[in-house]
Structures are given as C-alpha cells and as structure tokens.
Amino acid sequence: MKSLKRYSPIKFIDTPARIQVRNDWEVVLEYENEQKGPFLVDLSHIGKWDVEGEDLPLLRPAGLAIPKDSEQCLLTGDFLLNLIKWNWATIWHFSEDMPDFAEEFAFTNVTEAYALIALLGREAFSIMEKLTSLDLLSPKRKPPFLIMGPVVHIRSQVVVLSRERDRSAVLVACPRGYGQSIAEIMLESGKEYRLRPGGENIFSSLREMWGGTTNPVNINREEGKVN
C-alpha cells in the first residue's frame, strides 16, 4: 500500500541538507550552506485550525485560553492562538503530535489550505516594508500580535512574534495557491539583505528562546549553525 504524501505549496531551489518526514510531509530541517541570515522558513506543514462559534474566549482547547481581544496572540509551548474577530480564531501548532481538540466540532483543520512563511532576522521589518503597508512597528502593539491585511496585494494573516533585533520574527499566512508567489517576491525583496531559505531548525531554536530558553540565539551569525 502506498503511503500518503503531502506537498508544501512552497518550493525553494536551495539544496536541503537534512529532511524529516513528518505526518506525510517532507520537512526541510536544514539547507546546505546555511550561514548568515536573514532567513525565510517554510512552515506550511504545521497544524492549523480555524475555530468558529460564539463565546470563543470561553473555550479551552488543550487547556489554553483563546485571547479576548482581536489582534492579541497567545504563544505558549507548541501553540499560537489568534483571535481574528469575536466568532473566529485560529490555532497554529508547531509540534508533530495531534492535539486532543482536533476532532471537536468547533475546530476545522485547515493545515493544507494555507501557506505559512516565517521571516527571521534583524532585517525582517525592512523587508516587510517593501511588501505591505501594514504598520508592524507601531509602539501601541506589543508582540506577539496579529494583523489582517494585504501582503503583496494578497489578504494575509500577519503575526509579529518578536521585534528583538536579531531575533525579530514575522509569520505570514496566505491561501495556499499564493504561497509560492509570495515566497519568491519576499526573496527578491530581501536580496539586498541576502535573504535566503532556512530550515525549520532555525525557527525551532528561536521558538525555544521565546518560550524561556536562556541560551542566546543569533541567526545573523557569520558561520555555523544555530546552537
């Protein structure tokens, strides 16, 4: 019997150095010659759910509270929860294990419906300024936060995870069919900063730091890999 195989909507031309098959996806953990950032990381394979219904902040998926205010995000452990409006929230899950809430009626698995890209590094916001008019640096908003709006004219969910210089991170989720085009435009817009594809390990190392890891991570290193 042939096993199921899922394909990311994004394909980089760089040569993978390490690949892991996870939930029928081929996930690139590391590319050859990963040296100095900034990096563009394909996270389209991570679990994504839409949550719809009334009184969403009263739900406790996996014991986690959905934010009460739109634009707020909750980043904890393997989960990122976003309230888009009063009756619509999204949950992104960065681990390969299926959460317990996945089969509940209020949750729709939209993993394969969206491309998800992470832009990492101190130049992330300089690059995003070329792609969107959204104000991602407003002092009125504290990361992590969500903004809905156009990125290269494609309506997207934009999550600012960090504005801490080398650890800056922006996630862009868009309909699957636009994923490759947006990724290519982002790489072209980041050429002057030497933006390049990065493997999932770079994002995972930063996520551990946001979760309380004390080891510093510098993705704008001159050589070597994230420790």
Rank of each mutant, 00 (worst) to 15 (best):
R163A: 01
W86N: 15
A89V: 06
V160C: 07
I66E: 04
L56R: 05
R18K: 15
G77D: 10
N220W: 09
F125D: 08
D14Q: 08
S44E: 10
V159K: 03
S181R: 12
A106M: 04
D55G: 04
E54P: 04
T76S: 12
Q72A: 12
F145T: 05
M1I: 05
W49S: 01
V170N: 00
E123G: 02
L29E: 14
I46S: 00
E96Y: 06
R221A: 06
W92H: 12
I10H: 06
F94M: 07
S204W: 04
G53D: 08
H153A: 12
N227W: 13
L195K: 02
W92S: 11
G179A: 10
L187G: 05
R141W: 08
S156C: 13
G199W: 01
E164G: 00
R176I: 01
R194V: 06
L119M: 11
G198R: 02
Q180Y: 11
R221M: 10
F125K: 00
F94C: 04
F12G: 00
E164F: 06
I117V: 12
V170T: 04
T111V: 07
R207P: 00
N218C: 12
Q20T: 10
N215V: 15
I117Y: 01
K85L: 08
A89E: 05
R167L: 13
N220H: 15
P139C: 08
R167V: 01
N227I: 11
E112P: 00
P57N: 14
I219S: 01
L83D: 02
V152C: 11
P216L: 09
K68Q: 15
I91T: 03
G212F: 07
W25I: 02
R165I: 01
E164H: 12
T213V: 02
K36Y: 08
I117A: 02
M148I: 12
E200P: 00
V152P: 04
P150Y: 05
W92T: 13
E222D: 13
R141S: 14
I182F: 06
E192W: 07
G224W: 10
W92P: 03
E30L: 14
K68C: 13
E32C: 07
V151Y: 00
I147M: 15
S70P: 11
P67M: 08
L80Y: 04
G121Y: 01
G177I: 08
N215F: 14
I84G: 01
A113C: 11
D69P: 01
N215R: 15
P143Y: 09
S156Q: 11
F107A: 07
G211Q: 14
D166F: 03
S189L: 08
M128T: 01
S8H: 05
A62P: 03
A102I: 03
I202E: 04
